[in-house]
């Protein structure tokens, strides 16, 4: 599947979640998405990522919208039920969008998305900008691995619990920033040296090719998104 197809589905799905008010319907959609996510390779890890963001968010929303803090301070709170229902709706919408995004990310690789972006009609610089969060995260991962290797060779117990090596981690923060900055400079020079952005159009070898149905699906999704956005505005 072309990397953009999942992305194309994401947009109307998000808008649809905004349009639906019935919490039970939203909950069913979320449950379906989570089951699908769990069935992907590394599904467990992705579900954990999802939970890591959404569970604290649930707690925060309950405290704030339920105005429990206010009632603990002795204020009288009315309409708590309605406020909590609104919070639940908000939480379900965020949860759906994040689960769908994770589901999309599980269907692509950094490599295929990067190639698809470079092969798109976007100018190379814009394509690079869009791909850079993914590219940068790969680079940071490599840097962190190098740092912990360099530390371990000197006797930092990288297997020790966090609180026992926080000092050595702290001592590394500044050099890591310097390293990363010098990496960025190096990377920019490497891109320049290979004539990146020297022309408006570049060739991309082995670009992911969308199937005909995928193209129609993209246009359909765009149209649907337009309709949904319109209905949200008109409401």
């Amino acid at each position: 599947m072309h990397p953009f197809t999942g992305l194309a589905l994401l947009l109307p799905l998000g808008l649809l979640a905004m349009r639906i008010d019935l919490p039970s319907l939203l909950a069913v959609a979320l449950a379906l998405l989570l089951v699908a996510l769990g069935m992907r390779p590394l599904g467990g890890a992705r579900l954990r990522q999802w939970a890591l963001v959404l569970l604290p968010l649930a707690l925060g929303l309950t405290l704030v919208h339920g105005r429990y803090l206010d009632s603990w301070l002795g204020q009288v709170v009315d309409n708590r039920q309605a406020a909590l229902l609104a919070a639940l709706r908000l939480w379900l919408r965020v949860a759906i969008v994040l689960a769908a995004a994770l589901l999309w990310l599980s269907s692509i690789t950094t490599a295929s998305l990067t190639r698809a972006l470079f092969a798109s009609r976007l100018p190379p610089g814009v394509a690079y900008l869009l791909a850079s969060p993914l590219l940068l995260s790969e680079q940071l991962k490599a840097r962190l691995a190098a740092v912990s290797e360099a530390q371990a060779a000197r006797g930092v117990d990288v297997a020790a619990p966090f609180f026992r090596r926080w000092r050595s981690l702290l001592a590394l923060a500044a050099p890591l920033v310097v390293w990363t900055l010098s990496d960025v400079g190096e990377r920019a020079a490497a891109l320049d040296a290979r004539a990146f952005r020297s022309r408006l159009r570049r060739t991309t070898l082995d670009a992911p090719q969308p199937a005909i149905w995928e193209r129609w699906l993209w246009y359909g999704c765009a149209l649907l998104a337009l309709v949904l956005a319109g209905s949200l505005l008109w409401r």
Partner: peptide, 24 residues
């Protein structure tokens, strides 16, 4: 063995000096 024990027995000069330097 843990890293602190090993670091008293053996030291390594990395192939890339830049990847070894931890302090500023």
């Amino acid at each position: 063995a843990r890293a602190p024990q090993l670091a008293r027995q053996v030291a390594l000069m990395f192939q890339e000096a830049e990847r070894q330097i931890c302090h500023d």
